[in-house]
Design a protein around this nucleic acid. Sequence first.
RNA 1: GGUCCCAUCGUCUAGGGGUUAGGACGCUGGCCUCUCACGCCGGUAACAGGGGUUCGAAUCCCCUUGGGACCGCCA
Length: 464
Amino acid sequence: MSTVRTRFAPSPTGHLHIGGARTALFAWLYARHTQGKFILRIEDTDAERSTDEYTRMILEAMAWLGLDWDEGPFYQSQRLDVYRGSVDKLLAEGKAYWCECTPAELEQRRAGALAEGRKPKYDQTCRHKGLGPGPGRVVRFASPQTGTTAFDDLIKGRIVVDNSELDDLILLRSDNMPTYNFTVVIDDADMHITHCIRGDDHVNNTPRQIAIYEALGLPVPLFAHVPMILGADKTRLSKRHGATSVMAYKEMGYLPEALVNYLVRLSWSHGDQEIFTLDELVKLFDIADVGKAAAVFNPDKLLWLNHHYIMNGDVQRLAGMLPDFVRASGLEPQGDAYLKRVVTDVRERTKTLKEMMTFGDFYFKEIKPEAELQAKFFTPDLAPVFKDLVSRLEKVDLTDKASVEEVFKQVLEIHQIKFKQIAQPVRVALTGKTVSPGIFEIIATLEKVVVDRLKTALACMEAR
RNA sequence: GGUCCCAUCGUCUAGGGGUUAGGACGCUGGCCUCUCACGCCGGUAACAGGGGUUCGAAUCCCCUUGGGACCGCCA
């Protein structure tokens, strides 16, 4: 049994998006599952749109997701000689030919074909002209026109296409740059890819690529076309459905393990299990279990998973991620120990790291309860209670929950009131809002500003 | 328009001849309770339609319908 070799081959013409990430994840998981190799290849033959910046960001996103590669990244732009060699071979063998049709002519013929209800493929005008190289000319592949081409897709099953459907696609552009359908064949063969795992938008390209493999006498890899990820309206996921780039999710406060866990469950499952660690996925993932149908991206479920990982993650690690978000809110992060206490306080009620900041802003800035809240909760009758509370709280260690609870107990006893009656007033005094972590948790974490904030509230009560 | 692919709750999915069609997200009722949340208990909701095959189809076959992809000197 030869070693499995999979690859991910993004084009650096944009960010790594959700769909690409899921495809990369499947290819990576399959390689890891089979103890094979995962290769990264950057398909940058479109010099117009490819940028180093996108390449850098794609690599960064891969790293963030934890998808490491064993070989590469290889850059197609650095392998032009390899492609030229194969083009020359096809040309010499009469399996490719020069074409002088201009883009304008092609566009016109395409429009005409479509208008007449015909398939808008190249009409092979130059196929038998016997042209040589020349300015503005391209090299086309002489696709077989009779018979059929078939392959057994690991996900979709057997797919058979009539060769008459095959187009004489362009191998070499007039600027001498090779095109995708050609380079992907050369590289997958060259890099000994055994399993070509990619989006199923490539299913229709596969027969044409197989024709090229065969024309060049190259071994054809196995194909696994993974279903698309769609937006809520069932059309291809795009910007109008919300954030689509992986790094945008990082910035919104999502954890990589949450995104990975969410994405892997799109078209793949393992019984009723919803939560998977990376190790479990490596152990359990198999292409054979990938479904055929497209999946709709569901932000709510992603959020639920993120919440799960925030609630159960390592506090130290989460605290370490928080500073970026604190600063993004224009606030000061404060010490690590403090951040850990904040995480512990808020994580049960926040679904993203970013939300920790909006929900727990009072941990990082001065607060000022709104007038309405003051009017509602800082009522004069509570002044004596708060006064007692403050004087007693000043004498105990606020981080010691038992002591603080004892103080409250005594004050409630003295004033003959229920905890419920002062809980919200205290909460508002401490946080400026009516929703927060538990009173005793806040007091322990806020520690040194507790008395000041209670005094401010007390002053407000007495002034009424 | 042609070719190819797809079809179980709103969404992600399990189930692949005999199940009260299961789980998860969401929504929702209740419990817990210092708010919110967490947690726990419950509820809502699906086999696209029509023909076959079969003693019996969600499951196998065909058609229809619906959706998607591709048909670029993009990848």
